[in-house]
Design a protein around this nucleic acid. Structure first.
Lengths: 351, 351
DNA sequence: GCCAAGCTCTGTATCGGTTGAGAAGGGTCA
DNA sequence: TGACCCTTCTCAACCGATACAGAGCTTGGC
């Protein structure tokens, strides 16, 4: 039988409360008694109060739930995601809180159960497209949730629309009129290939929806109809998927003069696809990404910089100490268009 | 006030147990009553049994603790680590279990508390060098621990010594006699630079200790004294640190004809350092890594392949269902020396 | 010398469920 | 008709701790 508080209490001849205090509120008892208690505990092999029991009584789980899509590895493969997580972990660490990764299965029922069963003080929704019911379940738990789409929930993010609108305007100023967009999560079956996105508003994924909206608006302002823009679905957010998707843009005639992507990882894949075809970024085809991960700078890629680390940190703070004022519950961080060599004037050359 | 089982029970007019059964043991009550209960729950905004309370009673936390060193981001930056984690997550998912990342602070006391406070069913020790007391605390919890150094604990790994011995023999066969080793966690203050490692056995990090031992043995068998081998500490396991460390080997005279590293990430850094000096891998200087991450193949780098995904999977299985037979509690997976272009005959040229 | 204030420690209620024994009611079978 | 069983639900104990009120004893101020 594992020792409990009571075991130790009996051994020392004090009450259970006193042993509890020895661990949780050292100022509540004399140092000598505390020492005796800790000695007895050591002797009995008692390694401190049971975390679960403590959680139940104190009402604090000591963990933040992080909801993931199925592909955990993909999530960790994205430097942006890792940075976000790191910011989150930093704050969690300072608050003596852990990070509970909740892998969501593909089947809805399993995902719901996972969310309902997670012993956490709050959830961060992370790379989870809106069509998962899991977000709903998280919200139903009645604990703080960062970045759900629910009204009144906590939010930290950027002005996605304005960010890509700026990028789009940059492209329009350069004279591009044949443009392709590579995006993740815009086809429900998650395949790679050209898809028709008649109304951006109906997209399930928040991020893709907003980023596409920004581009659409910028293009519209310059007189480029959305229906003329080629939208290509990538099966996942990775360099390889980006390259595969880019093929659908680059191998058609007339070839687009610009290919933009909703993430840097996808955009790096587009650059790979250019290289494979001996096309020069910024001259033959302009490319824009999103996030500004370290590799983007190395690749001299134009992109939108967003503060990933800060996003994570703020998500953590919002969760662990939700502000009362509704205005403070939504934080919008600034972004910046970083122009590098991968964008240039539209090539007027043939095909 | 949040609704509880009792709230729902009162509403429907049944006992608390019955409501509990409605969620956890549907076969114990009539379908109609169950429906009525679930309806009432929905109406009251009750989202299922409190996970913490359930854990307390049932004795299952529903999470595996993953102990990390401080730099969470570093851990996620290593593709090997990500693969391992992915294997673990896969098994966890199948067992309706989450992954609790426990960030360990630098100060011992904080780390201990984090370990003692984690509501988990077991721990996986992950990139934690031996000098952290946290491992001790995990063991003291009396729950399964994978890969602690304790006798009788669960273990999944590879024969590190034999792996690097094979790599070392490969190097010896090629005639190399001026060799440098780049390793992480071999200097307590974690700085970059040449360090003296008189006795490999005393190294705190299990992994570095074993891998260096394998090389030492292979070198010794070929008549190369350990004291003649240059050992260089890297401040962390990353490409950049690897490159920085490599400088201490490459910029000396006579220059070593081979530089081996304890991880692929470090070895890739060594290759970067070679490139910066216009030295040809495999011709001017031979390089060997460890892990065989995808980038290693792309860089044509000789390395030791270990099954990261399987390691994660098996770690998970050991933890969630520890075998009774002590023999089954230790799993040693096979490795393979993958010879690529980064190793070649020792260059006999001047300096 | 007396009362208030402080310091230590105890007792009891409670956190929100799960569990196994058993009660009530209806049906089957000889 | 009575013995027996099955289904459906209730009861009371328990999981391992924390919170809070208050008891007993020392101190300190006046």
């Amino acid at each position: 039988m594992k020792p409990t508080l009571q075991t130790v209490a009996d051994r020392v001849g004090v009450s259970r409360s006193t042993v509890s205090n020895a661990y949780s509120r050292p100022d509540q008892l004399s140092p000598e008694l505390r020492e005796r208690i800790l000695d007895a505990a050591r002797e009995l092999g008692y390694s401190g109060p049971n975390p679960t029991a403590r959680s139940l009584r104190s009402g604090r789980a000591g963990a933040i739930g992080v909801l993931f899509t199925t592909a955990l590895s993909i999530a960790f493969t994205d430097p942006y995601a890792v940075q976000f997580l790191r910011g989150l972990a930093e704050v969690a660490e300072d608050n003596r809180t852990g990070l509970l990764l909740v892998p969501l299965r593909d089947d809805d029922e399993g995902a719901l159960e996972a969310v309902r069963n997670a012993a956490v003080d709050g959830f961060v929704v992370y790379c989870v497209p809106g069509w998962y019911k899991a977000m709903e379940a998280a919200w139903a738990r009645g604990i703080p949730v960062v970045n759900s789409d629910h009204f009144g929930s906590l939010f930290v993010g950027i002005d996605e629309i304005a960010s890509t609108r700026a990028a789009g305007e940059h492209l329009m100023r350069l004279g591009h009129r044949r443009v392709a967009i590579v995006a993740d999560y815009i086809s429900p079956d998650r395949r790679t290939g050209e898809v028709s996105v008649p109304s951006v508003e109906d997209l399930g994924s928040y991020v893709s929806r907003e980023r596409l909206t920004g581009y659409r608006d910028a293009f519209a302002a310059a007189g480029l109809e959305w229906s003329e823009v080629i939208t290509i679905s990538a099966a996942g957010n990775s360099r390889e998927h980006g390259a595969a998707a880019a093929a659908y843009a680059l191998d058609r005639a007339p070839r687009p003069t610009a290919v933009v992507a909703t993430t840097d990882l996808l955009a790096l894949g587009v650059l790979d696809a250019l290289a494979a075809r001996d096309l020069r970024p910024g001259r033959d085809v302009s490319v824009i990404g999103f996030d500004d991960i370290p590799d983007a700078a190395q690749a001299h890629m134009t992109t939108v910089r967003q503060p990933a680390l800060d996003r994570g940190r703020i998500a953590g703070r919002l969760l662990l100490d939700p502000p009362d004022d509704p205005a403070d519950r939504r934080v919008v961080l600034p972004t910046e268009l970083v122009v590098r060599a991968s964008t240039g004037p539209a090539s007027t050359g043939s095909v």
